[in-house]
Nucleic acid binder design. Sequence first.
DNA 1: AATGATGCCAACCGCCTCCAT
DNA 2: GATGGAGGCGGTTGGCATCAT
Length: 218
Amino acid sequence: MVRPPCCDKVGVKKGPWTPEEDIILVSYIQEHGPGNWRSIPTNTGLMRCSKSCRLRWTNYLRPGIKRGNFTPREEGIIIHLQAMLGNKWAAIASYLPQRTDNDIKNYWNTHLKKKLKKLQPTMGQNYTIPLDSTLPMHDNIQEKVVENTPLPNLCLHPSTYASSAENISKLLEGDERKPSMDSEEHPPFSYLEKWLLEENSGSIEGLMEMSSSANSAT
DNA sequence: AATGATGCCAACCGCCTCCAT
DNA sequence: GATGGAGGCGGTTGGCATCAT
């Protein structure tokens, strides 16, 4: 069955969002909360389809989003999780609450893929990260990893909102939901965590070296 | 300074899953 | 159980910015 796209109605606006549209969307969500995307265009008068509203909110307007400037730590986490989970950007993003799946996907495609390609020949073997032995193997590895291995200690502390949404975020003051940053003990996350704690945590090469020795040890 | 090539990222498209009926 | 609608996700693209020549 071929279903027509949700946005093929005449009069539905496409393309970049304007600040005015952002403000309307943020105000509405501030009042009613996210969800029920279908009702947003009708209730706000926005000439956008529901999907577009949801995407704009989750990828850009949602409070607590950090944009640009991925740190070596974040790079390491993304590389590790991508090796484990594949292109499950939403699952990977769940480990980095300040980053969106779209952002991670873009960063992977534009930066990390190239970086790894460059580094791989020098490593003399394919770059694969084995699953940590402390993690149980499941059919649905993505679900189980997320379920069993929370990594709030790997989350970065809130920093600047380096985005043009900064002004809009200010609108949300008072409703700002900061990502949880509890520092409780958590299950080990293999050499990724070790790498993060060690001196060489500033370079992806360090992580890859650890991963190589882990591979050869198995 | 002009122009073409390349990089980057916001947003769209289409498929899939879930849930209500 | 079948069907259809809504939301979620990953792949892809269009357009702007920057770099190289």
